[in-house]
Design a protein around this nucleic acid. Structure first.
Length: 343
DNA sequence: CGGATTTGACCCGCGC
DNA sequence: GCGCGGGTCAAATCCG
């Protein structure tokens, strides 16, 4: 059963939903641009006012905001294709709340979700109130904490963790996806600091909480392993990066897609597992989706305009034995490069 | 020694 | 009101 996992493209089922507690009714969509990594025709989850927006990369989504519904749709998740649950504020008819967990429960999707090759993106654009407020609240949470502490004298050792009282936090848009991976924390191009870990109810696997280490960046991410399918890792991003992707990070997953590595694959990559197998890396792409996008951003930023061609070429070669995978990859990559053409 | 991780305590929202 | 579970904090610890 566990043999040749490399044959699968590791998207899993996906659900889209909002974890917001209350809809303010305001349709202050988080982003003005809709994410269109692929050109997917068909029913769009976001039939709202987004027409022909510029393409944006996955990372941009995280950075600059995006219409998560569009994103989901763009991922090839037609509502009919298994586990797509999408909802918009005040329109959650499609949103099936995953049994108990607020996000990414494998069981979600209604009874025995067969693990197929479907993308797995969970979107909870619980934003509404707007990202800015949120980002502030993230920070002000602590600020108010300190203020409060200083005001009240902060006697309790930990008692004054001044969380926002009576105020709903957690308004950041969320974006979750499931991937098959042996490692919990997937390199995605950003640097994260773990700030907590909790046991997950009904699951032997803990959930880890990470925060982007970049100053003033309030993006968080949760990583947990599905208890139903221990090979599946559920990653949930919350918030948007307000900074560029760190180019050279330790594991330098990002570097894997830098022009140099793309153009000269024979130059070995420092990264251990992925480096040894480009094939593996690409197959694990969903794991590194952020990385791909991040690196793609690097391509753009560095102005390497023919990197895309090279990449396509390489991919074709890499995947000529595996048309299916390549096809899926094509779905992912090309439109990312469209933007490059654009600029 | 500085930064990252671990881990127990605390806060908060929610359901009963 | 209470208990539970999720999320966060921060001191302690680990590690390069």
């Amino acid at each position: 059963m566990s043999d040749e996992p490399s044959k699968e493209l590791y998207y899993q089922d996906l659900y889209l939903g909002h974890s917001n507690q209350q809809s303010t009714g305001g349709s202050a969509m988080f982003c003005e641009k809709s994410f269109s990594p692929f050109n997917i025709p068909g029913p769009s989850a976001s039939s709202s006012g987004f027409d022909d927006p510029p393409y944006m990369s996955f990372t941009e989504c995280l950075q600059g905001g995006l219409d998560y519904n569009s994103l989901a749709t763009s991922f090839g998740l037609s509502p009919s294709s298994s586990e797509v649950f999408s909802s918009v504020e005040g329109n959650n008819n499609n949103y099936q709340k995953p049994s108990s967990e607020g996000h990414g429960d494998l069981g979600g999707g209604g009874s025995e979700t067969p693990v197929t090759q479907n993308s797995s993106i969970s979107n909870s654009s619980s934003s509404e109130a707007g990202a800015e407020e949120e980002q502030d609240s993230g920070k002000s949470k602590k600020d108010s904490d300190e203020v409060k502490a200083s005001e009240e004298g902060s006697n309790n050792k930990k008692g004054n963790k001044g969380r926002k009282k009576g105020k709903k936090q957690q308004k950041e848009p969320r974006f979750a996806f499931m991937t098959k991976s042996e490692v919990d924390h997937l390199e995605d191009g950003y640097r994260w600091r773990k700030y907590g870990q909790k046991a997950v109810k009904n699951s032997p696997y803990p959930r880890s909480y990470y925060r982007c280490t970049t100053q003033k960046c309030t993006v968080k991410k949760r990583v947990e392993r599905s208890y139903q399918d221990p090979t599946t890792v559920i990653t949930t991003y919350e918030g948007q990066h307000n900074h560029p992707v760190p180019t050279s990070l330790r594991g330098n997953a990002a570097a894997m897609f830098t022009p140099s590595s793309l153009l000269t694959p024979q130059h070995t990559l420092p990264s251990a597992n992925a480096a040894s197998h480009h094939h593996d890396f690409f197959l694990h792409m969903p794991h590194h989706f952020n990385t791909v996008a991040a690196s793609y951003n690097n391509l753009i930023n560095t102005g390497t305009n023919n990197a895309s061609n090279s990449l396509h070429h390489q991919l074709q070669q890499q995947y000529h034995n595996n048309p299916h995978d390549y096809g899926l990859l094509q779905d992912i990559l090309p439109s990312m490069f469209l933007k490059q053409d654009h600029s």
